[in-house]
Amino acid sequence: MAETSLQSQTQKQSGAANKFWRSIKESLGAWAYIAPAGLLMMFITFFPQVFQAWMAFTDYRITNLRFNIFNPETWEAFAPEMVGFENFIRVITSSLAIENYDFVRLLTFNIVWTISNVFFHVVLGVIIALALNAKTLYGRRIYRAIFVLPWAIPGLIIAFTWANMFDRRFGAINQLLGLVNEWFGWAINTDIRWLESAQPPIGGILSFLPLSFYAVLIANIWLGWPFMTVIATGALQSIPTELYEAAKIDGASGWQQLWKITVPLIRPAMIPAIMVGTIWTFNNFNVIYFITRGGPFGRTELLVTQAFKLVYEQRLYGVAAAFSIVVFIVLMILTLIQNQVTHATEAYYD
């Protein structure tokens, strides 16, 4: 009896050891699958980030470009000077010698831009997905094909097109307003300076938003909803029709069905899409850079367009590095908050 128990004990021990080795072996196997992607990210994203963190504490400029981290001979002659937190302080307290630079304004604008865009993308995207998902609809396939166009046409091109359309002289939007005037006998101003006017159209708390904000908002709504429609369509198609039939038998109205069945059931698919959409919109370079160029007076500048200008126009690599780190931290905080909020509400629905 004692013997057998001893035997089983050693067996158990060697079993545990085996298990351990097996898990190591399996881990190595798994990491081998991840290695190509992991190494690429390590080299292209992670390592530059570490390098960036170092650069942010230096006064890295164009003359330091000859500094080569892999070549010790260049270290002494071209190494940038360490400046401590100076770059960060200058970025946050807006004391950079650049026209129209105001960190608080940039950040506020970037957040307002993101929230307003994502809101319209999701609402419009879901409404259109609902319409396309109606039980009987003529021309469904044609609509689906057309509605993918804003997503399929390169964003860069769309941005150029909207910039042209918002032009004051003979721009499509002003011409369209003229046509509306003609049809209805109205007298809307057809000489609107969409992109240049510094006058805020809505006063009070929104007076920091120039007219060009609304112009780029329209352009970016046009651009962004199809992605949300696609996600919402996938989610809608996964809802079993029996649920609606049962609700109908119970006498639920269309409105009740929407809020009690549709909305809760597409939530799980929409939340990740909203989080990704938020990140994409927060960093949407093309629309701002090619339509308003951040103007008038830098009031529609985003953090990314400012970062690009710091590198490309000012060549202040050290400051740009500090700036990018600040942007990353801001985005991380926002995502964590968003995650917290959406999780909290999810628990509420369950």
């Binding site: 994203t45 390098f51 890295y60 892999f70 070549n71 990140i279 960093n283 370079f285 690009f308 942007v327």
Partner: peptide, 19 residues
């Protein structure tokens, strides 16, 4: 890493890939 804007890595990437 999804949160990292591509443009946020420009400065170091430029410097590194240059080398």
């Amino acid at each position: 890493l999804l949160m990292l804007p591509a443009t946020a890595t420009i400065a170091p990437l430029y410097v590194l890939l240059n080398q």
